[in-house]
Design a protein around this nucleic acid. Sequence first.
RNA 1: GUGGGCGUAGCUCAGCUGGUAGAGCACCCGGUUGUGGUCCGGGAUGUCGCGGGUUCGACCCCCGUCGCUCACCCCA
Length: 417
Amino acid sequence: MKYQAPKGVSEYFPPRSSWFEHVIWKLEESALAANYRFIETPIFEDTELFARGVGETTDVVTKEMYTFEDRGGRSITLRPEGTAGVIRSIIENGLDRGQLPVKVFYSGPFFRAERPQAGRYRQFFQFGIEAVGVDDPALDAEVISVAHLAFQKLGLTDYQIQINSLGDKESRNIHREDLLSFIRKANFDQETIDRAEKNPLRIFDDKRGEVQEKIKNAPLLSQFLSSESKIKFEQVKSNLDKLQIPYLVNERLVRGLDYYTGTTFEFVHNRLGAQATICGGGRYDGLMETLGGQALSGIGFGLGIDRTLLAMESEGIELKDRQYVDIYIIPISDTAKNLALEMAVNCRRGGFVADVAFGNRGLKGSMKAADKMATHFVLVLGDDELSSGSGRLKRMSDGEEFSVSLTSLVDELRAIL
RNA sequence: GUGGGCGUAGCUCAGCUGGUAGAGCACCCGGUUGUGGUCCGGGAUGUCGCGGGUUCGACCCCCGUCGCUCACCCCA
């Protein structure tokens, strides 16, 4: 094979591509139902935006970005996540100077230069929403509810929502020192310590058993939360209760991006491999300011479309191919060929899905083709039809035939479909 | 960056302790002249990832290489 797709990218082609479309549509539907508006930002941005926004010490920034120089010598990076670009756009276009909160959703490809594995790709598709400018626990709950509703529309059931509060800056700083000294005393290997020095919270995410054992008694952030943070977190939880959205408080839940503060959450699917987080997000208090905007809080989530599809498949959710053909026209003489496409185009103008048996497969072969592509009606065009000006529409579901006039085919279709 | 597994027809895979390749599905044609789904018959398809070595002989053994895949770190 001469060419193959670059390592670690996912491709969606028929029929699976129609499930992919379906997932995106349900996600959009859920966001629109909550009055989020569509935003489309560039796939590449100034490298500095991500470095500042996502955080200089994060793995994403230090080793996972696709960065290159453009012809003008500027450093450009393919977006590794969605929030930084959206916030940049909100600031640049002054959306935060109108009514608040600004509620937007986005969808598209993202890029990270990592070693691929199940559910993790170098180019992956993410859907996300952001609500900027209002710091209200009810909004935190709403954001979670949007993802939850979407997953329910898709038929997913075997997942859990984990939530935690990372508190405000002050609470975090005190905890950080305490946790760091705990880690320093626990004699870890050098690599683990180095990582912890950058962001000690990450140690909670370490999957190695011996590490988990050692941090069993590590000080948790929840013990350091300011009373204000605690109250907000309680409100988020009681809001979720009222919405009857089940969740699990996971005090060790941390996220790999530096901008998160306050409420954080993850939707974790139970039947996926190591990469089981199908949606993750949280509140970010300092991000707007960091990127040069007003000091406004925001909250949002990123939702993995590839992983969602995998999750649906793991639950055995039946995904039907949505493509169908209303009318399939089979010309069986040379003179009929010219007319066939013309009639098909007319049907399309009339709002129907119409296709033609191109090439020379013969009648039988064309009938088989019609059968395979979920065709409602077939019209055979031969010399008889051309001379009489009428034909028989065959309904594939039961074989019944309807005689129709060729010149008023669209109307006839409307009448029987 | 580190470690494990795997590379045989379009797809999923079989191939016993080494004797130069098979199944199912899919695909195409046919079962008489212009009507599909089932059934029956027939057919095409592989440099057995690539390179080297051992051997009379390698898909099967050894080495290298490339690719895929899963996992670690981390994330959607």
